[in-house]
């Protein structure tokens, strides 16, 4: 096989972890403890009486947690930009979906449907 190449080996044939161990190694324990703290905040927030405040806090915290996991545990931060764009495009698609559907499914007079 190797005689076929006149360039020096395609990237995918390089043995692990010689070339691709380029991403950073954040302190995983720190990230983990931050995640637990955030988790604690969302648990405490769930006892708040103000519904709107509670939902805002809980979902902000979830988003933060997700960003920590995706960027540090999954090393997305160190991946090439096109790949990051592809991943975040998924969120764009979902945002488009929820905005487009909101007017038809959520904002409807209820007595139209319920018998």
């Amino acid at each position: 096989m190797s005689t076929k190449f006149h360039n020096e080996g395609l990237a995918h044939e390089v043995e692990y972890p010689a070339l691709n161990d380029y991403h950073g190694h954040p302190n995983y324990l720190k990230v983990y403890i931050t995640l637990l703290l955030l988790f604690g905040i969302s648990l405490v927030a769930s006892y708040l009486n103000n519904f709107l405040l509670m939902v805002t806090i809980v979902f902000l915290v979830s988003t933060l947690k997700a960003l920590l996991v995706i960027n540090y545990f999954m090393h997305l931060k160190w991946e090439p930009i096109p790949l990051q764009i592809i991943i975040y495009m998924a969120l764009f698609a979902l945002a488009a979906l929820i905005i487009g559907v909101y007017f038809d499914v959520t904002v409807v007079p209820r007595d139209v449907y319920t018998p």
Binding site: H12, A18, N20, H23, W78, P80, L83, I87
Partner: peptide
């Protein structure tokens, strides 16, 4: 060990399996 830690890889440096899973 490669010295280029923290340098952004190109799309071709990533192992296929990782790209596929992403």
């Amino acid at each position: 060990m490669n010295t280029s830690i923290n340098k952004k890889p190109t799309l071709r440096d990533i192992p296929q399996a990782r790209l596929g899973v992403w």
